[in-house]
Design a protein around this nucleic acid. Structure first.
Lengths: 159, 159
DNA sequence: TATTGTTATACTCTATAACTATA
DNA sequence: TATAGTTATAGAGTATAACAATA
């Protein structure tokens, strides 16, 4: 097990990475919120999706997902079709405009990252991407067993 | 230079790490917002600080910093003293209550991370922490020369 | 009864602009 | 004039709870 100092430093860096996310968000076209970019990218990556599945992938409450999807639908980037298998559910897919927007976003992100990360090797970038993916998995597994995180907080509070 | 797909994947992972940050935020004591935890940790790490320096470290506007510091001061965690060298400025330092809160936060974070990252080696954690720090530096350098990021967006828009 | 999704409400975080006080 | 900091305002993101429709 790592030292406390090492965990504290990781927590600090995880907080600080928000600044990078804000920088990337500023690159987006006027009407495209960061959340819209995330939603569109996930629908593209996973294909036709239900709301509940999208909420799970974003790790946010479904009420939040619903607002983001409504916004993207009103802007013509996303299409909500009824699910023939379950009439409570709706299936999301990208519109042609959504695909075009996503290409634009990808171009801007790539351009900015290539500029800022000039001195990063492919391996560096791959290592960071891989570790972030693994971090999400580790936390996702924890979240699936809520007693873990809750226990950690309770134990700390009791100590 | 890395492939476009690699940059897109990195951008996705950077967006997704927000979920981990939210999970950590949920561990905090009732009155302690995530922003308060960040402010207190920075004051502890860097010692007596001016508002402008704190804003720079958080990479947010000074108006945002001002609100966070006011909140932490009203809760008795932070002390704002006049700067004898410049009467426009104020110097921030931790109160005993602030130090105690920070110890509590550190315990909770450490407990949760130790639980979720059970199968991570010290080297894994160090690698992720180091890469995140480097990412911030690379973006910080870019931000210091705004034409870089702006140029990236403009070039993409023109393309 | 349980589940899918939507809406209302409230809270946190951030940026812009206008302002005060001091350099 | 320029800089340090504050405040007002607006916008984006999220969670909780109450609700409608369907399984």
């Amino acid at each position: 097990m790592a030292a406390q100092e090492q965990y504290e430093e990781l927590a600090r860096q995880l907080s600080a990475v928000a600044a990078v996310r804000r920088d990337l968000g500023r690159l987006l076209p006027p009407d495209c919120s960061p959340a819209s970019a995330v939603v569109l990218a996930l629908v593209q990556k996973h294909g036709e999706l239900r709301m509940s599945r999208l909420a799970e992938l974003m790790a946010v409450d479904m009420s939040v997902t619903s607002r983001h999807v409504t916004y993207a639908t009103e802007h013509g980037w996303l299409v909500r079709l009824p699910d023939p298998a379950d009439r409570r559910s709706r299936l999301l897919s990208l519109s042609p405009d959504g695909e075009a927007l996503l290409r634009e976003v990808s171009t801007r992100y790539t351009q900015a990252l290539a500029t800022c990360l000039q001195d990063w090797s492919d391996d560096d970038i791959g290592a960071l991407t891989g570790l972030l993916a693994r971090l999400r998995t580790s936390f996702g597994d924890c979240r699936a067993r809520p007693q873990h995180l809750a226990h950690a907080a309770d134990a700390a509070a009791a100590g």
